[in-house]
Amino acid sequence: MRHIISILIENESGALSRVAGLFSARGYNIESLTVAPTEDPTLSRMTLVTRGDEAIIEQITKQLNKLVEVVKLLDLSDGPHIEREMMMIKLKADNGRRDEIARLVDIFRGKVVDVTDSTFVVELTGKSAKLDAFIKAAHEDSVVEVVRSGPLGIARGSKGLKL
C-alpha cells in the first residue's frame, strides 16, 4: 500500500540524511521525498511517499519517530487528505504544434511560463496521476525535459500538524 507521511523535523544540518539513511539501512523504499523550512525557520516539513504492508508502515513510522530530530509525524493516508504535486515540463513547440499544446495546457489548467521559438515550459499542479496523464497526452517525442516536486500533502479538516 502507498502511504504519504508528513514529518515535522528540526531544521538542522544532517536531519535529512538521518531520514534517508534510516530508509536505506532498514531496506524501506522512498518513492519521493520533499523538504523545505516551515513558517517557523527552526522546523522543516517533509512529505515522504513510501510503500509497504501494514507491519512495514508501522515500523517506518516508529523508526522515524525514534529519530531524535523528528518532532512530529502524521501518516496522511490514515484519513482524508489533499495531495498536490508540481511539475515543470519543457515541450517541443514548433509552428505546427503551438496551438495544440496551448489547448492541452488549458484543459489541464496549467500555465505556459516560458516560450522560445521552438519550446514551451509548462507549469502544472495536481495529483500525481494528473501529471502522468499530461505527459502521456503531450506525446513522448515532444517532451524535452520533466521536473517534478514529488507530492506534498495536508490533512483535510481543522486539525493541523503543528507543534
Partner: peptide
C-alpha cells in the same frame, strides 16, 4: 521502553 521494538519481529 522503545515503541519500535514492539511488533518489529513478532506481532
Amino acid at each position: 521502553i522503545d515503541p519500535s521494538s514492539i511488533s518489529k519481529n513478532v506481532r
